[in-house]
Structures are given as structure tokens and as C-alpha cells.
């Protein structure tokens, strides 16, 4: 069902647009963020801002506790200041690869392992099909 929505919502559902995390004409955005895997669900806020080098972002939970920061220059994503409980090399590697679809400054082919959808005007859904992880973003209107 989600695949059908994705195909209808995006004229070219196989490649992302530039900076999906930013609205056209804006250099910053805030999103309600949910990370889901099976029954596990983590929520928080994702803040992103455009810089001269690319994109910089931070994911914090509602209490202000930081999950991680990330930067993207070109299509190279760095993840840093990761919450100790999440600070494993394989988690950082996964986040880098997944965030690349959202933070790179040029269209990145999602490939067979990932799917990026925009199913409402202010929502994004990134699926990691291999590890069954969903990243949901719902824009916080300012």
C-alpha cells in the first residue's frame, strides 16, 4: 500500500529531490521525528539548517536529550555526538547511509534497500527495506 502511495505521490519515485528535509526557499526546518523498527518506536525532533558547506542537523528527543548530530557536504554524511546507547559503529554506518537520501545536495538513487516517500504535503517517510526501519518526518509549522 505504501509503495502505491509513493508511486502516486512522486512523479519520479525512484530518485529523491534536492534536500528533501528543507522547504523550497527556506534554509531551515523542524520536523517531528519517529524512528520505528518492529514494536520499537523512538520519537523526537529533527532540526536542519542549510550552511555554505551543505546541511547540518540535529535529532533530539522531546526532553532535549540529543540522539545525534549530522552534517552533509556533497553526498558525504557524517554522524557525531551520538547518544552513548546508540554509539555503535554499525548504527552510525546505518544512519549515514540512510540519511544520505535526505541530506545530500544532489539526487541519490535509493536503490533496492531504501524507499523515500512524500505521502502528505509536509511529511516524509524513509524506509530501510533491508532492516525494516522507518524514519518518519512531519513538519512542525512555525
Amino acid at each position: 500500500m505504501i509503495s502505491i502511495f509513493c508511486a502516486l505521490a512522486l512523479p519520479n519515485a525512484t530518485a529523491q529531490t534536492d534536500y528533501p528535509l528543507l522547504l523550497a526557499g527556506s534554509d531551515h526546518a523542524r520536523w517531528n521525528f519517529t524512528l520505528e523498527r518492529g514494536t520499537l518506536s523512538l520519537t523526537g525532533i529533527c532540526l536542519v539548517r542549510q550552511t555554505d558547506e551543505g546541511l547540518v542537523g540535529s535529532v533530539v528527543n522531546e526532553f532535549g536529550i540529543r540522539a545525534f548530530d549530522f552534517t552533509c557536504c556533497g553526498d558525504k554524511v557524517r554522524v557525531m555526538n551520538v547518544l552513548p546507547q546508540m554509539n555503535k559503529w554499525y548504527i552510525r554506518r546505518l544512519l549515514r547511509a540512510d540519511l544520505r537520501l535526505l541530506a545530500a545536495d544532489k539526487a541519490v538513487e535509493p536503490g533496492k534497500r531504501r524507499q523515500l516517500c512524500s505521502y502528505l504535503p509536509d511529511s516524509l517517510l524513509l524506509n530501510n527495506l533491508k532492516y525494516h526501519i522507518n524514519y518518519r518526518f512531519e513538519r512542525i509549522k512555525e
Partner: peptide, 15 residues
């Protein structure tokens, strides 16, 4: 009022 400083973002989040 909760104010979170994010130096990497050069920004604050106020809730």
C-alpha cells in the same frame, strides 16, 4: 519553558 542549545546548529529550541 525548556531551552535547548544546539551549538552545531547555532540555534536554540524553545519548548
Amino acid at each position: 519553558t525548556q531551552t535547548k542549545t544546539l551549538s552545531i546548529m547555532n540555534d536554540k529550541m524553545v519548548s
